[in-house]
């Protein structure tokens, strides 16, 4: 093949590739980018569903954010929910995946059972755990009552309520982590383990020194994906705590909901959303770069 022909072929395929990419970009722009621009535009106004707008434009909403104690509080709540939640999900998901692979490889049916919570929609997850954390209804409280033990109420203290949401969130999403880690484990050859066993390393040592480092890219990916999702915490808070006790579980996204839907403060709610979005965009930038690096080798 001459270089000229190759050049033509590659120009053709470039066009073909572009045509393949275009519909998705158009769809994303229509369904996504336009509303997103609307969100930014709205955050610069002082539009309120009830009072309307004075026509004033500016960054006032963003300056107000930093003086708003409730907003600052919501960021702390979000940090607690996200960091704890992601930590538990990643640790549990990894532990289950590794356990299924190394400790109980014969539990084929259990694999599906471990996945089951992932099939439950989040709103149902929230209702299920609300029933478990309601002392009058809870089977846990009833069980320990048999032995005269009073189980403390989770939802009435700040730490308890945060723990309750983290537990429910962990239950619902560790299977996602488990799936990804199982996949990654499939790609890691058993020979390495055997080799290290010959070197006299214990199984636990071999896990920490051999398996874990190989899992690192997968762990990083799954952690970032889960982190981004936890920024959007909504159904669990909406159903389980309504932001209480007090305001101790009003995470940022939920606070945005309160401002937008309860207080009709649409522009301020949009500003809160923009804040979250920008933060997530920074995180996603790194995910995207990581992915390009991992897939392009």
């Amino acid at each position: 093949m001459t270089t000229k022909a190759a050049g033509r072929a590659s120009a053709e395929s470039t066009r073909a590739y572009r045509n393949m990419l275009l519909p998705a970009l158009i769809a994303v722009t229509a369904f996504g980018i336009v509303p997103l621009m609307g969100m930014f535009a709205l955050s610069l106004t002082d539009y309120n569903l009830i009072k309307g707008s004075s026509g004033h434009f500016g960054l006032d909403n963003f300056f107000r954010l930093w003086q708003d104690r409730r907003f600052v509080n919501s960021v702390y709540v979000l940090a607690a929910l996200s960091l704890l939640g992601v930590a538990f999900q990643v640790v549990l998901g990894t532990a289950v995946a590794v356990g299924l692979q190394k400790i109980v490889p014969k539990w084929k049916f259990a694999r599906s059972l471990f996945l089951a919570p992932y099939a439950v929609p989040h709103i149902a997850v929230a209702l299920v755990w609300l029933s478990i954390f309601t002392p009058t209804l809870s089977p846990i409280n009833a069980f320990f009552d048999l032995f005269g033990i009073t189980v403390p109420t989770m939802l009435t203290s700040q730490n308890g309520a945060i723990a309750a949401i983290v537990i429910a969130d962990t239950w619902a999403t560790y299977p996602f982590v488990m799936l990804l880690i199982l996949a990654a484990l499939n790609g890691i050859s058993d020979d390495l383990d055997e080799a290290s066993a010959l070197d006299g390393a214990s199984r636990i040592q071999s896990f920490f020194y051999i398996t874990l480092p190989l899992l690192f890219p997968a762990l990083l990916m799954v952690t970032l994906f889960r982190f981004i999702d936890t920024l959007k915490h909504f159904p669990l808070i909406f159903v389980m705590t309504k932001g209480g006790p007090g305001r101790s579980t009003q995470a940022t996204n939920f606070y945005g909901y309160v401002q937008t839907f309860q207080n009709s403060n649409v522009s301020y709610g949009a500003a809160i959303a923009v804040f979250l979005f920008v933060f997530a965009a920074i995180v996603s930038f790194y995910v995207a770069r990581l992915n390009v690096r991992l897939t392009n080798g």
Partner: peptide, 20 residues
């Protein structure tokens, strides 16, 4: 704007009840 005012008072009352 009672929605907003009522919610603000209610959240503080609940916070006090739960010892926050």
């Amino acid at each position: 704007n009672w929605d907003e005012i009522g919610a603000a008072i209610g959240e503080n009352v609940n916070g006090a009840l739960n010892g926050l």
